[in-house]
């Protein structure tokens, strides 16, 4: 087996693990009865989708030289800029995920407040019992 095959296999293992995480968290979101468990599954699902977006911006190594973060660390000359564009990863998914993480925290806070309101009204957070109570 050559190195390229192993590299491809390892990258696909990463991708398949993320897919498995997404499927497990969707299962938890739909079929677990407890409200808090649903919130946990939702945060895991959004993190997994963010990781997919980051993964799409990645680029491979070239002759043993690693890709760089999209931050220029030297003085901007013609040479350093061309080297930067040749090796830096895609900054656009990172910029989108950055705000998505903070908005996810705000949405989680909203859901936590909602869960507390639910508990004060129904004295339970089990969705099956809340469905039975109807009030």
């Amino acid at each position: 087996m050559d190195a390229e095959f192993i590299n491809t296999y390892l990258l696909l293992v990463t991708l398949t693990s993320l897919l498995a995480n997404a499927i497990i968290s969707i299962y938890g979101l739909f079929f677990k009865p407890h409200y808090t468990k649903k919130v946990i599954a939702l945060t895991i699902l959004s993190d997994t989708m963010n990781t997919f977006a980051i993964y799409l911006g990645y680029r491979t190594w070239v002759n043993g030289v690693n890709p760089r973060p999209p931050v220029l660390t030297s003085t901007p000359t013609e040479k350093s800029i061309s080297e930067f564009t040749a090796r830096a990863v895609d900054p656009l998914p990172q910029a989108l995920v950055l705000t998505a993480v903070v908005i996810g925290l705000a949405v989680t806070l909203f859901l936590v407040f909602l869960g507390y309101i639910l508990y004060t009204h129904y004295k339970t957070l089990d969705m099956r019992e809340i469905k039975k109570l109807k009030g």
């Binding site: 491809t8 990258l11 696909l12 991708l15 993964y55 799409l56 911006g57 990645y58 680029r59 491979t60 070239v62 564009t85 830096a88 990863v89 895609d90 656009l92």
Partner: peptide, 8 residues
């Protein structure tokens, strides 16, 4: 889905 050498 596999990352390439070039970026968009």
């Amino acid at each position: 889905l596999l990352p390439g050498i070039e970026v968009r």
